[in-house]
Measured scan of single mutants.
Amino acid sequence: NITNLCPFDEVFNATRFASVYAWNRKRISNCVADYSVLYNFAPFFAFKCYGVSPTKLNDLCFTNVYADSFVIRGNEVSQIAPGQTGNIADYNYKLPDDFTGCVIAWNSNKLDSKVGGNYNYLYRLFRKSNLKPFERDISTEIYQAGNKPCNGVAGFNCYFPLRSYGFRPTYGVGHQPYRVVVLSFELLHAPATVCGPKKST
């Protein structure tokens, strides 16, 4: 009989979020998941679920829940969905086509923008091939755009693969920082350890 609540607040209220190319993952297990707390949290810009209804989450049990978190621009949030393409979905964070879970995003301009620009948040701009679902690539190898080998030196046709967002408070909404948490639900042939409040007695 599990009684402790799942530590969703640790994920959602973290002081610093990860850059999207180096997205953070927390495994959540052996706890009671009260999703209504999240669902009623006012400032969400997006709360979209795939393969599961957000209002039914509290009735369900899962083997594991993974909480992935990172920061992207407002106009990139739409790429955090199954079957998407674009710089983020291709080179930074890719969801599987059969994704079961929820994508939760909110504007973090007050936290993550600075006058003069916040350059701490990076994304991958160049990559030889697209990421596989949930693949994480933190390499900083110089990207070779031409035929000539770069030998690890940036220059003509040789690019550092990461780019900084440089968030400023005055940017338009599409270019403002958004914090994103992706909850993915794993249902294995194993005992369920993460259940909603109704199922955990």
Score class of each variant (00 low, 15 high):
Asn24Gln: 00
Leu60His: 07
Gly166Asn: 09
Tyr21His: 03
Ser200Leu: 09
Pro197Cys: 11
Tyr21Val: 00
Phe47Ala: 11
Leu122Ile: 09
Arg27His: 11
Asp98Ser: 12
Asp98Pro: 04
Ala18Arg: 14
Lys110Pro: 06
Leu111Trp: 09
Phe160Val: 05
Phe45Glu: 11
Leu5Met: 15
Leu183Met: 09
Val37Arg: 05
Ala14Ser: 01
Ser53Cys: 07
Leu188Asn: 08
Asn118Thr: 05
Arg16Phe: 04
Pro161Ser: 09
Gly196Ser: 14
His189Pro: 00
Pro197Gly: 05
Thr15Ser: 11
Asp90Met: 14
Ser53Pro: 01
Leu187Lys: 10
Thr193Asn: 02
Glu186Trp: 01
Asn4Met: 01
Lys26Met: 15
Ala14Lys: 11
Asn30Ser: 05
Leu125Asn: 14
Pro133Gly: 04
Phe160Ala: 12
Lys128Gln: 07
Val115Ala: 00
Leu38Met: 07
Ser200Tyr: 05
Phe47Val: 04
Val52Met: 13
Ser53Glu: 10
Asn24Val: 00
Asn109Lys: 04
Glu141Pro: 03
Val52Thr: 07
Thr193Trp: 06
Pro43Glu: 05
Val115Pro: 00
Phe44Tyr: 09
Lys26Ile: 14
Phe134Trp: 08
Thr15His: 02
Thr193His: 13
Lys26Arg: 11
Ala154Arg: 09
Ile72Cys: 00
Asn120Ile: 09
Ala33Ile: 09
Ile138Pro: 11
Phe47Met: 13
Gly174Ser: 14
Ala67Met: 00
Phe126Lys: 11
Lys132Asn: 15
Tyr66Ser: 01
Tyr159Trp: 12
Val173Lys: 02
His175Asn: 13
Ser36Thr: 03
Gly196Glu: 04
Thr201Leu: 12
Asn87Arg: 03
Asp59Gly: 02
Asn40Ser: 12
Ser139Ala: 07
Thr100Cys: 01
Lys199Gln: 14
Ser129Met: 05
Leu122Asn: 15
Leu125Tyr: 06
Ala22Lys: 03
Asn40His: 03
Gly196Phe: 05
Tyr35Thr: 07
Val173Gly: 10
Tyr119Trp: 01
Glu141Cys: 03
Thr100Asn: 02
Arg163Val: 04
Lys128Phe: 08
Val32Phe: 06
Thr140Gly: 06
Thr201Lys: 11
Ile142Gln: 08
Pro54Asp: 04
Asn58Glu: 04
Ser164Asn: 14
Asp98Gln: 04
Thr85Ala: 08
Ala192Gly: 12
Lys94His: 01
Thr140Ile: 04
Lys198Asp: 04
Phe17Trp: 14
Asp98Asn: 10
Gly116Ala: 01
Asn58Met: 14
Thr193Gly: 12
Lys110Gly: 08
Pro197Lys: 01
Asn58Pro: 12
Phe156His: 02
Phe126Ile: 03
Ala190Arg: 14
Thr15Asp: 15
Asp90Ala: 10
Glu10Asp: 01
Lys26Ala: 00
Tyr119Leu: 01
Phe44Ser: 05
Val115Cys: 00
Lys128Ile: 10
Asn58Ser: 04
Leu5Glu: 03
Asn58Gly: 05
Gln84Gly: 02
Phe44Val: 05
Leu111Gln: 14
Leu111His: 15
Ile2Gln: 01
Ile142Phe: 08
Asn130Phe: 10
Ser184His: 04
Tyr178Cys: 02
Gly116Pro: 00
Gly83His: 09
Arg73Ser: 01
Asn130Lys: 11
Gly196Arg: 15
Arg136Gln: 07
Asn87Cys: 02
Ser78Cys: 11
Val32His: 08
Asn75Gly: 07
Lys114Cys: 00
Pro54Arg: 13
Ser164Ala: 11
Ser139Glu: 04
Gly146Asn: 04
Leu111Val: 09
Thr15Ala: 06
Val11Ile: 01
Phe160Cys: 10
Asn147Ala: 15
Glu186Gln: 06
Thr63Arg: 14
Asn130Cys: 08
Lys56Glu: 03
Thr100Gln: 08
Tyr119Ser: 07
Arg136His: 02
Lys48Asn: 15
His189Val: 07
Glu186Asp: 14
Val115Ile: 10
Asp59Ala: 14
Ile142Val: 09
Val65Ala: 02
Thr170Lys: 00
Asn64Arg: 08
Thr170Met: 14
Lys198Gly: 06
Phe99Trp: 09
Tyr123Met: 05
Asp98His: 07
Lys148Ser: 03
Pro197Val: 05
Gly166Ile: 03
Pro149Tyr: 06
Lys148Ile: 14
Gly174Arg: 09
Thr140Glu: 06
Asn109Leu: 03
Gly166Leu: 09
His189Trp: 08
Lys148Trp: 11
Phe126Met: 03
Thr100Met: 10
Ser200Met: 15
Asn87Tyr: 14
Asp97Met: 08
Ser53His: 05
Gly166Lys: 00
Phe44His: 10
